[in-house]
Design a binder for these strands. Structure first.
Lengths: 188, 188, 188, 188
DNA sequence: TATGAATGAGCATTCATTCAT
DNA sequence: AATGAATGAATGCTCATTCAT
């Protein structure tokens, strides 16, 4: 009987390892050797889960984005306003986990100009996120277009806060990030 | 007497070539061979201008940031409000040149988590930019802290717009970027 | 299960190849490419056996010295005087194998002034050889110090013969080397 | 009027610099850059004095050997026995200068197996040295052959002492080297 | 004569990938 | 499924050499 392995779970494990290596050593420091070692495997084992490095990287980006999405789920018990606020807060680099997500996101954002596959993944994740935010906004507002425009404004707000937080992490504590978010949300 | 070469100019030429290669092929595609070829030289020539690759990359980031700074200069003839608006507009990825700057910026932002030298350069350029914007804002507002806070809000605004524009360039035309900027500036 | 390889044997094979290349092309002609080709491998394969070139070179020296040592073994059936004579004879560059050993030894002796690791290996092999000769001498002589001094004299004798043989190989045939050794041994 | 330069003197200066670099960094660390810098010049200047690197190295060996020869000169005022003793003493690595000579000699001895030009230079210097010693010996002894054989024995003696001194410099002080030489000379 | 810019080959090393086991 | 040996191409870097000045 062959050893039973949950292939999907293993792929996610490896993608998480890749994300950690990218955050630690940059995207060009993310060799297969390094990623495999980070996950506790040897290089040769990767071949069972990814056809090549590009596939691993694309899946790493996808997984990182999925993870952000999963953090948004289950806000059913909240009011729309609360859900919107929680969603935006959870996107900021206030924790080690979300900071890692942001570093990986930026690494791939830069890489996307050189890799169409990555660009597509990113574009779709962006549109999906915009729709999510837009739907939460629409709970309060009525017209469709206005909701989308407001969603874009709010995403710009958190992206802008996040980027500054990454450039000067010491100045942008969790508190300041949240304060800037609240202030921006009120501004409308 | 040896051939006379303007070393500083040559360094900038090479840094620009590096920026183009990074935008085209990602930061891990920016090999010395590729950069030298892009600049019309051979690998061995780089050694006269940069001790090693890391120095080339750091200088490339620095040059890219300096270029943004030089775009901000000479707003003397404008009113403070006009100068502020022009400054923020010029920071958006609305042209090929500024888009390239943004891609390079993001590539290095991701790399900075793995390279302390790059992180320092970026942090200082960010603070410098914040001061510039703050000074323009202060022309209108009075209290110092308020000006800085407003500057951070405006930088978040353009960073946020820029990031979305990079994720979905087709949706974020120059017009939409500028409209989003104007709308955000009014919001205060 | 991966392909099974006798790592130690492979290391010795590679070290022998390195010794041949050093003898043929000098120590600066001993590139990894050349050594790998001499051994029938490609450069990349070396990485499994040596972390870097310095490690390969140190091991090459060590192996060359070990080989000399192994030539000295198993003199059990001889009288001390015969064993001493056989030991000294086997150290002279009278065969292709021992000549190669001598060329490699000299290459590393010169290199040792620039590489402390090599210097240590050489010093210890020298002291070990001196002890071996000293022990054989002591079979005849009684006092410890006198034996050591005689060992040094005998080592000087064969080193001196060997060096001249390397400078003028045509003049120093095996016969002349052995005659000079015999003459020197009687001299005491 | 062109700058007047003593070409021969400049060549010797450069050869001495090369010898120092070889002793310090090994023969493969003796790049033209390094040698030129050691002599206080730039690489390009070497081309006026040596057609290529090989020529520089051959001349470096030649110069190192010539220097040994010049140390032997002017023993006119001594008795033959004193002259012989002084000659042999001056060949031992007892000073920084003669130690450097020995390291360079060994570096080139190893290299000679890969470079016929070097081998010729070395062989002739060896024969010349043997004749010198032989002539001094002949002052005491009568038959020609016996003198040559004794010269070889004495050269073997100092070569052997020198080699051991290079392998274990801490054990072989100047005193011990000279004592071993005296003891060996008496042995005959 | 001397400089140092530039070339292009070569170096040690790293790496993605393949594959026998 | 997993290992790790092996390949061969690429990388950053060094170097001998050439040459305009």
């Amino acid at each position: 009987m062959p050893k039973v392995v949950d292939v999907d779970q293993r792929r996610v494990e490896l993608a998480d390892a890749a994300a950690r290596v990218i955050a630690r050593s940059g995207i060009d420091g993310a060799s297969l050797r390094e990623v495999a070692a980070e996950a506790g495997w040897t290089t040769g084992a990767l071949v069972h889960y990814f056809a090549n490095k590009q596939e691993l990287l694309a899946f790493t980006l996808q997984t990182s984005l999925d993870r952000r999405r999963s953090r948004l789920a289950d806000r059913a018990s909240l009011t729309p306003a609360e859900a919107l606020s929680a969603t935006l807060r959870s996107a900021l680099p206030t924790t080690a986990e979300t900071t890692l997500h942001w570093i990986v996101t930026l690494a791939f954002a830069a890489q996307a100009s050189a890799d169409a596959d990555l660009a597509v993944i990113q574009r779709e994740a962006y549109l999906d996120f915009r729709d999510t935010v837009s739907a939460l906004v629409a709970g309060e507002h009525s017209p469709r277009d206005a909701a989308e425009q407001e969603a874009e404004r709010l995403i710009a707000l958190i992206d802008g806060i996040a980027l500054q937080a990454l450039f000067a992490p010491d100045l942008w504590t969790e508190q300041r990030q949240l304060a800037a978010l609240d202030s921006g949300m009120r501004a409308r």
